[in-house]
Design a binder for these strands. Structure first.
Ligand SMILES: [Mn+2]
Ligand SMILES: [Mn+2]
Ligand SMILES: [Zn+2]
Ligand SMILES: [Zn+2]
Lengths: 160, 160
DNA sequence: ATGATAATGGAAATCATTATCAATAAGGAG
DNA sequence: CTCCTTATTGATAATGATTTCCATTATCAT
């Protein structure tokens, strides 16, 4: 329907997004997005770097960092700190998408678990809270972070 | 009332806590706790280091880091990552204390705002959620992190 | 196809946090 | 209170993730 639609020519849906911010589309950015959209893992910059080295032996780690920063800035990717000393990234469908989820972080082994359960109740409370906080502090909320810390099933057993 | 009470001899309430974990009480640990309990700011290790240098010109930054790690491990202090590249610390009264609060983080200027509003509703939802998640994932939750990101009043204005 | 300029990648620089290790001090035993 | 074991400290070096630089390359509007 939209005249600008370029589907069917091998272009990812993200081209328009990137270009819309005035950035150029490059093979490296394509490659990083390709990986990010195909995994549910929480990859570090170096994880991505290693995965790409097969396909692009000359890609630089610096470029991975730069690309991730761009993707975070334009809202395509979330950046997380799970406490293991390196940033971790995950594709983002935005805080209102049905795939939006939060995390359980095992403080023992570092395992990360996605959960979408209870998100509906959460969403309701979050909306109220965001509205109240915006009003009280004149703070314009754009996003939120929720994480639960504790022991995963395995670590909880080993604990005993 | 309690026979073990040591008030009135210059000992902080935290002595028993630290000793209870088998750690020795030192002037340095005392000093760090003294600062942490007297501020509502979110200090970095270096912040604390500088504040202490007047009183203890010989205290080492390494010791600050070690002490903070100890305090976090024993639950007296919370460690946060607000995205400015350094860890920030804050005294903890525990997730069930009336002083327990969450944060608004300005993504523009980095300003951190404590809020306790809506905590009651939050607590209710958190309890339900924690219970549900514990059951579904066999995950033993010990703590949680909630942060809202956006623009503070000042940055929102300047934005326009 | 051409040119202006944004993007890349290799290497060096940053900078918060850790590891080492000899010197010091806490606190239980006597 | 003194002694002794051993946790703790502090100076320094090491680590490691992320940035900065800058010459080379690639994108894309014209
Ligand atoms: Mn996730
Ligand atoms: Mn706070
Ligand atoms: Zn675990
Ligand atoms: Zn601000």
């Amino acid at each position: 329907m939209q005249s600008g639609c370029r589907r069917g020519r091998g272009l990812g849906w993200w081209h328009g997004h990137i270009r819309g911010y005035g950035y150029r589309m490059t093979a490296q950015r394509e490659a990083v997005l390709e990986i990010m959209t195909k995994t549910r893992e929480h990859l570090s910059a170096e994880d991505i770097y290693h995965q790409l080295h097969n396909l692009y032996p000359n890609i630089g780690l610096t470029t991975i960092y730069r690309t991730l920063e761009l993707l975070v800035d334009t809202g395509l990717v979330y950046k997380f700190d799970f406490g293991d000393g390196r940033a971790r990234y995950e594709i983002s469908e935005g805080p209102d998408s049905p795939d939006h989820h939060h995390h359980l972080v095992c403080t023992c082994c570092g395992k990360i678990t996605n959960y979408t359960d209870f998100i509906d109740k959460e969403r309701k409370l979050l909306n109220e809270t965001e509205m109240g906080l915006s009003k009280k502090f004149n703070f314009k909320i754009t996003n939120h972070l929720i994480q639960f810390y504790g022991l995963c099933e395995k670590c909880n057993k080993d604990e005993k």
